[in-house]
Design a binder for these strands. Structure first.
Length: 306
DNA sequence: AAGCTATGCAACCGCCTCGCG
DNA sequence: ACGCGAGGCGGTTGCATAGCT
């Protein structure tokens, strides 16, 4: 830190600008130009800090400001530039005459970003977002829907790298559990190599648990609705407990469960009146905002899984 | 009509960069 | 090379308003 704010906060007015203040600032800049922002407020007779004046001028009072809704073309430009530049709002604004970085940033956050999320597009990478355990996701086929316990097993590996791996696996449409398992193990070996550690699982260990709990479900090939929900939920709980033992409770302790409003399913709902629940892996990696989602059948509570 | 919630956006905050002495 | 200050940037906050119950 060390630096004090550019303006001594004491004595400066804050909050919305009044029409009188706008007039003073506009008049002064029209007469003298912006010049030194720090000395400007004093010269213009304003009780504002220089930064505040600068922002007000640049974002609102400048004569070449274009106001009103963004056109389709402008929006396209923002999206394209953002895919290349990221959150470089000022650079993006430079390509859109009359628009300010603040305005573009606000428009992005309140409109485009939300739309992207609705469309399951990652607003950071602009790539289709894969929620690995989202049962309504189009990457999951009907047999995946049957394999809730399979999916929940992956869910128990809620390390950031596991989340990414799960997304990758589903994205690559691995057809068999064996391949999926192999990929998991490969990833473990890779991570272990990188961290100079032994892998957490031996592939046969994981395989045994996998075979026991998942394959019977795979092989059943029954439509989900015909499965006994109680048995299924028991299997889910077993998955959690089994993974807890193998991974260590510290991992699971890092998880938090947050209920969110249910969203319409794009494919036929596998469960009756399900409510969506996101599971967040609590991590220090700020870039890892991965989340997983699965459906809790009516009559069951998320606490049943804790 | 009142209260609550969601949304949009102006404005602020803190940090970074750059230029100057 | 270093320190300082102004300008600039991106993230966040908070208020006004709209919409809903």
């Amino acid at each position: 830190m060390g630096r004090s704010p550019c303006c001594d906060k004491h004595g400066f007015k804050k909050g919305p600008w009044s029409p009188e203040e706008d007039m003073k600032l506009t008049h002064y800049i029209q007469m003298h130009g912006p010049g030194n922002w720090r000395s400007l407020p004093k010269n213009a007779g304003l009780e504002r800090c220089g930064k505040s004046c600068r922002l007000r001028w640049i974002n609102y009072l400048r004569p070449d400001i274009k106001r009103g809704r963004f056109s389709f073309e402008e929006e396209e430009t923002i999206i394209q530039l953002h895919s290349v530049l990221g959150n470089k709002w000022s650079t993006i604004a430079a390509k859109l005459p009359g628009r300010t970085d603040n305005e573009i940033k606000n428009y992005w956050n309140t409109h485009i970003r939300k739309r992207f999320l609705r469309m399951r597009i990652d607003p950071v990478t602009h790539a289709p977002r894969l929620d690995p355990l989202d049962l309504s996701s189009s990457v999951l086929n009907s047999s995946d829907l049957v394999n809730l316990s399979n999916l929940l097993r992956l869910q128990t590996l809620l390390k950031p790298e596991a989340l990414r791996l799960a997304a990758n696996i589903l994205a690559s449409n691995y057809e068999t559990p064996q391949l999926l398992l192999q990929k998991l193990h490969e990833n473990q070996l890779l991570n272990a190599q990188m961290q100079n550690q032994t892998p957490t699982f031996q592939s046969n260990q994981l395989g045994n648990a996998f075979d026991k709990q998942i394959l019977p479900c795979n092989q059943s090939n029954l439509p989900y609705s015909s499965l006994d929900q109680t048995d299924l939920m028991q299997s889910v709980q077993e998955s959690f407990h089994s993974a807890s033992e193998q991974i260590g409770t510290d991992l699971l302790e890092n998880l938090s469960f947050n209920s969110v409003p249910s969203t319409p399913l794009s494919s036929p709902a596998p469960l009756n009146s399900a409510s969506s629940t996101y599971i967040h892996g609590s991590t220090e990696d700020e870039n890892c905002s991965d989340f997983l989602k699965f459906e809790i059948p009516e009559g069951l509570d998320i606490d049943d899984f804790m």
